[in-house]
Design a protein around this nucleic acid. Structure first.
Length: 308
DNA sequence: CGCATTTGACCTGCGC
DNA sequence: GCGCAGGTCAAATGCG
């Protein structure tokens, strides 16, 4: 992932003759008398210098926007890695404290733990529950006014309990998967203590049935679709693309250095305006918290699938 | 009437 | 051993 930066190369053709049809021709006709072109050339140079300054300023602005984008991405990635490393840590004997800390820090994103079962709640579970203990966590942005602890993830859940925990004023709801009678998966949903608009869903176990609930998927609310709606298997990717407009972000291109933007580019077939458009879209997307949350969920879901 | 949700009681594990 | 806190059960309740 480290190398998956956005290409920062801007195809801003600052060739002085780019915007003038006459100049190259005159250059080709190089033997033209000085007195014939002196005055128009001066005027033209002034215009071109002005144009160059404008483009340079725009270039600088775009570079800054792109830097912000990359920093934002790096921050998200760092957050994700911290969460993963935290979940893979072993040895915290004080399970309840550890769990509490997890809730307070896992504000955005989706974490899972496929290899080391029960690491999040390693010491709290009965041994028999740890055998199938694949634990994952999803954070879903929800309306703070909505008291229902419902996380729509495509599965059918049956609520079997609710409890107010010590470290969080909002109650914790307990769900069992009712899609299949023998499905052992359980889900705990609780609002984040720090941000009541975020629902933290913790999944335990693996579904022993296929996930096909179109009605449930189609009912994913816009509130959820923009945030990280996910569970421990496939629905993370499905939900993130179910109702939101399709946005394809290519992060596979290597990043260009700052110097790259200053180099004159050989490519003239790609209009600069398209590049600017792309940059502006990227910048606006990174300012959208829903998009960043969805991106985090999508990345997490990808990692989960690779682990499976 | 059947199913899902609510909610108080009970069970279990952990720390002191 | 006791108390605390999280997790689960099951009767009561609500809703379509």
């Amino acid at each position: 992932m480290e190398s998956a930066w956005v290409n920062t190369t801007l195809d801003l053709n600052v060739n002085p003759f780019f915007h003038t049809n006459q100049a190259p021709k005159r250059e080709a006709d190089g033997k033209m008398a000085d007195f014939e072109v002196k005055s128009p050339i001066k005027q033209e140079i002034g215009i071109l210098v002005e144009e160059l300054n404008r483009v340079s300023a725009e270039n600088k602005k775009l570079t800054e926007m792109l830097t912000a984008l990359c920093e934002h991405y790096a921050t998200l990635q760092k957050q994700y890695e911290e969460l993963v490393s935290k979940n893979t840590e072993t040895g915290s004997s004080k399970k309840r404290k550890a769990e509490c800390e997890d809730y307070s820090t896992a504000v955005i994103g989706f974490t899972t733990n496929a290899e080391s079962s029960c690491s999040i709640e390693n010491s709290c579970k009965k041994p028999k529950e740890c055998i199938n203990g694949k634990i994952s966590r999803a954070c879903v942005r929800a309306d703070p006014c909505d008291n229902s602890l419902i996380v729509r993830d495509g599965y059918q859940w049956r609520k079997y309990g609710q409890k107010v925990t010590r470290d969080n004023p909002s109650p914790r709801a307990y769900f069992k998967c009712s899609f299949a009678p023998s499905c052992p998966v359980k889900k705990k949903v609780q609002r984040s203590a720090e941000d009541p608009s975020i629902l933290v869903a913790t999944y335990e176990g693996e579904h022993n049935h296929t996930h096909h609930s179109p009605s449930a998927l189609s009912s994913l609310s816009p509130v959820n679709s923009g945030a990280a709606t996910a569970n421990n298997s496939r629905s993370a990717r499905v939900s993130s693309s179910s109702s939101a407009p399709a946005v394809t972000v290519d992060l596979t291109k290597p990043a260009g250095s700052d110097d790259d933007t200053k180099k004159p580019t050989q490519k003239v077939d790609q209009p600069a305006i398209q590049q600017i458009l792309v940059q502006q879209i990227a910048a606006s997307l990174t300012r959208d918290p829903n998009f960043t949350a969805a991106l985090a969920a999508a990345i997490s879901g990808k990692v989960v699938d690779q682990k499976l």
